[in-house]
Computed example of a mutant assay.
Amino acid sequence: MENSTWMTNRSDMSGFILVGLFSQTEHPALLCAVIFVIFLMALSGNSILIFLIHSSIHLHTPMYFFISQLSLMDVMYISVTVPKMLMDQVLVVNKISAPECGMQMFLYVTLAGSEFFLLASMAYDRYVAICHPLRYPVLMNHRVCLSLASGCWFLGSVDGFLFTPITMTFPFCRSRAIHHFFCEVPAVLKLSCSDTSLYEIFMYLCCVLMLLIPVTVISGSYYFILLTIHRMNSAEGRKKAFATCSSHMAVVILFYGAAVYTYMLPSSYHSPEKDMMVSVFYTILTPVLNPLIYSLRNKDVTGALKKMLNVGMVFQETVK
């Protein structure tokens, strides 16, 4: 009897209902417009940064290669969740099928995991550049950079292939309403009618490992970087080193802080409203902030942008 009930619940499960972000506000149309503007800013900012890095010879260095990878991840990251959310609000539809939910979950987890390791690779790159400048061209050659970037994408996809199938195979016989604006793993697990405690412990341990390895690399890199900066005699050298490292540390704190809250804090600290606000921060706001952090505080990027704009203006004048 229990098996037949379970099968009935599974067969009726055509999909889920995303309660969404707009149900939390009295002015959904205004919030929708604001998120749409932020989405366009994130797409344009990261796309311009990618274009500048690939078109300017002066930016063909390992540091900017990793920044372009980060921008690519951010473009994909925000595109996984925001378009669906905005379309649902416009069309007054808040349903998502199980395959769509699984695909969204897989892409989101893959990109998040990839970014964890990419930020560690960027910290290692800064360590080599500042602590071993003479050996930098050899230690961070093009093949090494490609290998590190490929490894980041691979480890992120392992995360996606690990969590998505397990999460989506749990029986969902409770309410189909996901109190979130996308299919995040913890939000979907709350709908399961089976005991997920063992899986949650497993997921917690995996997240600890996923965070511990990059955090160890980042902490170790910056420990040696600070020692090297302290020994520098040149004030200009110290200033330049601090400038490049502070930009990276700002991104690390933003991204890792939100991840720690979502996956590592006990459930007593969580509520659907808090979870959505934190998710808005690292899925919508962080992709907008990253290109600003790396461009506004970087003379090489701003110089390349000015050069591109000047070339565009000259071309328009010659056409006229």
Rank of each mutant, 00 (worst) to 15 (best):
S192M: 08
I218E: 02
Y204D: 03
A187C: 03
S192V: 03
V215A: 15
P214V: 07
Y222L: 02
S219Y: 08
A177E: 14
H179P: 02
Y222E: 00
F202P: 01
S197E: 12
T216Y: 12
V188I: 14
R176I: 08
L198K: 12
E184D: 11
T216F: 14
L198Q: 12
L198R: 14
A187S: 15
C183W: 07
M210E: 05
Y199T: 04
S221R: 06
L212C: 11
F202R: 08
S197H: 10
S194H: 14
L198I: 15
C206M: 15
R176W: 10
K190Q: 13
S219G: 09
V185E: 13
T216A: 15
H179K: 11
P186W: 06
V188K: 04
L209E: 04
C207T: 06
G220T: 09
L189V: 09
C183R: 05
T196L: 05
F202Q: 08
P186L: 06
I213Y: 08
S194F: 09
L205T: 08
F181W: 15
K190F: 10
L212G: 07
E200K: 12
L205W: 10
H180I: 00
V185I: 15
C206K: 07
A187T: 04
V188Y: 04
D195C: 14
S194N: 10
P186A: 03
H179Q: 15
V217S: 07
L191Q: 03
L209A: 14
Y223G: 00
L209K: 08
H179Y: 11
L205K: 13
L209F: 13
L198N: 11
L209M: 15
L209G: 07
C206A: 13
I213L: 13
F224A: 10
E200M: 09
T216I: 13
Y223I: 07
K190L: 03
P214C: 07
E200F: 00
M203L: 07
C183K: 07
F224M: 11
M210D: 02
L189D: 02
C207H: 10
M210A: 08
A177D: 13
M210N: 09
T196M: 01
V185D: 00
D195F: 11
L189N: 01
A187K: 01
S197Q: 14
I201Q: 12
H180S: 03
Y223V: 00
C193Q: 02
V208F: 05
M210Y: 12
L205R: 10
G220L: 11
M203I: 03
I218R: 00
L211C: 10
Y222V: 02
H179W: 09
A177R: 12
Y222W: 12
P214S: 05
I178T: 05
Y222C: 02
Y223P: 04
L211Q: 11
Y199I: 11
V215H: 00
E200Y: 04
Y222G: 01
V185G: 02
A177P: 00
Y204R: 10
V185R: 06
G220C: 12
V188H: 04
L205D: 12
H180L: 02
V217F: 07
